[in-house]
Design a protein around this nucleic acid. Structure first.
Lengths: 339, 339
DNA sequence: TTGTAAGCGTTATCAT
DNA sequence: ATGATAACGCTTACAA
């Protein structure tokens, strides 16, 4: 049978209130008493009962905020669904999840959302941060105010964020390269379509991909272009790249843009291209089913949101910090047959 | 704010006890009162509070049993780890998990274990059943006695088991074939090493694989042999098969046996074989790293155990039956780069 | 500094 | 058939 506060209290010859104060460092306990209580708890292997805690927490107003600036984006919708699912599993603690969506890459908006969350009294925040000093500072301000912050999907340095939950971008690129190792043994001439060279994640993917391709016999990166996550731009840039490099036999989409890019390839009448993309949005699925994309490397957006809330909860409610600073999702290879 | 029994009681003008009886069909409630209570609960969208329930459940002696006859088997160890993890997450309900391991394919043992669980008063059982009529009957007996039963990893027909949680074997085979579509465009001559033709799962995998290979241009299944899940047998049978069919350019391991089988291929000095296996045990990982296996299709054993316990819990405690009769795990493709 | 008691939501027992 | 009450483990406001 698990140990309870009551039992510890009896053994220590004090009241449950005192035990509670000692165990949770609320102060107002004589040091020697505190020491004794902690020791007993330790010896008996005390772990708080989740249900008791939950019931007591209902009178607080526990809430987390999540900042994912990309409304309507299928990827972030999945991530938010995961976060909401986890939050629902803690509903007996009275936990509510506040969601901040809105335009992407809008720093003013993001800073405002963070301030709003703080004003609303959230205890934890998960954010997909814009990688700028202002955001860095704001996050540190929140952390200093006692709010637990973690990053999801994108990371940001020099902050007191507890951990990063998201894609292992480098390995994602490596994995894409690995598929080419298996599919293009005669050698790879790769064209890369990235999102933006200003995006850390995209760059890490490219680095992983390049490193992997360099290992392959008779292989090289032919060229790189940017889609800026827009299909029209992807179309034009991919078209230019393919025309300038007729030796390209492989395309790697390190971000959004596969729809536009593949349209360019089709319009140019190119056959036999090997194409690897990232993620599995509806549009990507369609291209995989159509046989235009051979494989796509996915990053479990649902689980990212789910884990983010779980980790916040453990940190805030159970005072258990994340096991690792980088909580990476699996890089899932999907082909037509297991889409 | 969520609705509570207390609120419903006030609205219905009865006591909490009566509401409890009505909501949980415990009888001894005047039909008209019961109807009124149920209606109010429905209207207000009542869902029981998990924490309250947990606290109350602590006085019962809730337990589940899991029958996975394969002690020391890495795959089943992962599955059990998943089951235990889920059970721990319900520890505030006082849930304990009883594990029955032991020898594989021993019907007498399995029947005994089921009886023992019943005698011990478990409310739910997850079992990886031996596919025989005796087991079928025993399961139906347990179900008739009010015990919720689900199957994990292997299924059995004609029983009242709530659902099956495990690998989608057919799709696993299809996915393996899909990898060949990408890796062997010039045509496949496949040798299949299955476990036993008496194992349903292995057969489904083979069927999926064959169906996929038949779709490929200039491709065929050259031969099939059985490893009986033993490396020595796998060595001999694979060796015979490879010698009898020099045209084989591809091996598919639909079950255990890759270590022995690949040793045979190495000893025969065969080069350039494309090899696909299932699962990711240590030994498989080693072979993938060594470049002898190009890809392995995995079935998330941890999650199988985890989901199994979750589903049992929902059925037993929340009276929520599984959403689907077949709860399939993902078929995860692993190659050297994302192992 | 420490103890007491009430409260969170559900369930079970006992009395009516 | 129904109501009252206590119990589960934890937190906290208040009293001592």
């Amino acid at each position: 049978m698990p140990v309870t506060v009551k039992q510890i209290a009896e053994l220590a010859g004090v009241s449950r209130g005192t035990v509670d104060r000692a165990l949770n460092g609320r102060g107002n306990v004589r040091p020697e008493v505190e020491k004794r209580i902690l020791q007993i708890a330790e010896e008996m292997g005390y772990t708080p009962n989740r249900a008791g805690k939950a019931l007591a927490y209902q009178r607080k107003n526990l809430s987390f905020g999540i900042v994912a600036n990309a409304h309507g984006n299928e990827f972030f919708d999945d991530l938010l669904k995961g976060a909401q699912t986890a939050a629902d599993e803690y509903s007996d603690f009275g936990l509510s999840l506040k969601i901040a969506g809105g335009r992407r890459y809008d720093v003013t908006q993001q800073l405002q959302q963070l301030s709003d969350f703080q004003a609303a009294g959230v205890s934890g925040i998960a954010i997909s941060p814009i990688n700028l000093p202002e955001v860095e500072r704001k996050i540190n301000e929140l952390v200093a105010a006692g709010i637990k912050v973690i990053t999801v999907n994108s990371d940001i340095e020099n902050t007191g964020r507890l951990c990063y939950v998201g894609c292992n971008y480098y390995q994602s690129g490596i994995t894409a390269g690995g598929m080419l190792r298996l599919m293009r043994p005669e050698g790879v001439r790769a064209g890369i379509v990235t999102g933006s060279i200003r995006m850390l994640g995209h760059n890490r993917r490219m680095k992983g991909f390049s490193d992997a391709v360099k290992q392959l016999p008779d292989s090289a990166i032919a060229d790189v272009c940017e889609s800026l996550d827009e299909q029209e731009v992807a179309y034009e840039e991919t078209r230019k790249m393919l025309m300038a490099h007729p030796e390209i036999n492989t395309l790697y989409f390190a971000a959004a843009g596969a729809v536009g890019g593949m349209q360019a390839a089709v319009d140019l009448g190119l056959q036999g291209l090997t194409v690897i993309s990232c993620d599995d949005t509806q549009e990507i699925r369609r291209l995989v089913r159509a046989g235009l994309i051979q494989a796509t490397v996915c990053q479990e957006p649902f689980r990212q949101g789910y884990r983010a809330v779980q980790i916040l909860f453990d940190a805030v409610v159970n005072n258990i910090p994340p096991a690792e600073e980088f909580c990476y999702m699996d890089n899932i290879i999907r082909i037509q047959e297991n889409l």
